[in-house]
Every structure is written in C-alpha cells, then in structure tokens.
C-alpha cells in the first residue's frame, strides 16, 4: 500500500515538474516534438532509477559509516556524471538500437537537476532501498508524462498566431502554468 501511495504521489500529486520545479531546463528545451520528448523521457527514467540505487548504496554504505555525509553533494554529482557516461558506453556496446533512440539525450541528463534532486530527496525522506527505487522510477515517469503532454501542446502551438512578445519561452511558461493548475486537481488524492 505504501508503495502504491509513493507511485501515485510522485507521478501525479507531487509531479516533479509542476509541483517541485525540478528538471525545468530540459522540460523547456527538449519539448518541441512529441517524438524527441518520448526519447528524453525514457532516458531520464532509465538514468534516474539507476542513479537512485547508486546514491542509496553510497549514502548508507559509504558516507554514513565514514561519517562524511557533508560530502553528499560532491559525491552524488560526481557519481551521477560518471554514471551517465558509463551508461552511454554500455548501451552503445550492448544495444545499438536503444543507443540510437536515447544516445543524444544521455549527455544532457547530467545537467538535469531532477536526477540529483531525486538522489538528495530519497535520503531526506529516509526511504529504504525498495521505496527509493520506486520513488525514483515514479518521479521520472512523472517527468516523462509532463514532458510528453507539454510537447503535444507545443506542437499545436506552433501553428497558432502567438503575439510577438509572447513567442518562445514566455508562452511556454504560461502553458506550463495552466498545466500546473490542472495537475493541482490531483492534490488530495493521496
């Protein structure tokens, strides 16, 4: 039951983009087409979940026993950055098809604050390993969901006659604001 609550909470109620404001840069940057946003979403789900496992193990088997939890930020960012590189190499070798689909998005993920954010949050929320994995996966799915919905709207927005001063990012932010309002409808679900 706990697990179900974490999933619904992370995807809908506390959506990573619309309620927690993490990963806004890729959200605004890679949301012009539904197809690319699907690729980006999949890459984020993949990396975030792996990063969460690694962050959990590091926190409880290295940082806490050594009493150096203040090194958390430095350790996490380095590990995530190298992890992304490693994932890229492994996928390239093991599954060229997957690499074709995710390849160009992987380097972009290092600067996605959602990945580091999830790693820090799961420590703050004191989740155990299973909860951490589920939380990371669900948060990333929430990100992918937000990205795909947003890309769908932006594709149609391309064809509309937007006032000059609103073109580009401003109209995207206004759309995101309205979407965030829609997502507020989920609050109280958990």
């Amino acid at each position: 039951m706990e697990i179900v609550l974490i999933i619904i909470g992370a995807i809908l109620v506390n959506n990573v983009v619309f309620a927690q404001f993490l990963g806004i840069c890729p959200f605004l940057g890679v949301s012009n087409k539904v197809s690319t946003s699907l690729g980006m979403g999949a890459a984020v789900v993949f990396v975030t979940t792996i990063a969460a496992v690694v962050a959990y193990l590091l926190q409880y088997y290295v940082l806490v026993p050594l009493g150096i939890t203040y090194m958390q930020t430095i350790v996490f960012i380095l590990v995530i950055a190298s992890l992304v590189q490693m994932v890229e190499l492994v996928i390239k070798k093991v599954s060229p098809v997957l690499y074709q689909a995710l390849g160009i998005f992987l380097p972009l993920i290092t600067t996605n604050c959602a990945v580091l954010g999830v790693a820090i949050l799961l420590v703050q929320k004191e989740f155990d390993l299973l909860e951490s994995v589920v939380f990371a996966f669900a948060t990333a799915v929430g990100f992918a969901l937000a990205l795909v919905i947003f890309a769908g709207i932006r594709e149609r927005l391309e064809l509309e006659n937007v006032p000059k001063a609103l073109k580009g990012t401003p109209i995207a932010l206004v759309v995101a604001g309205i979407l965030a309002m829609a997502f507020m409808g989920f609050s109280g679900l958990v």
Binding site: F18, A19, A172, L173, V174, G177, F183, M184
Partner: peptide, 9 residues
C-alpha cells in the same frame, strides 16, 4: 506552483 510559471512568463 502555477503562479510561478505564470508570473515568470
């Protein structure tokens, strides 16, 4: 949350 997006936009 929605206010953040709207005001910045």
């Amino acid at each position: 949350a929605p206010g953040a997006f709207l005001v910045l936009g």
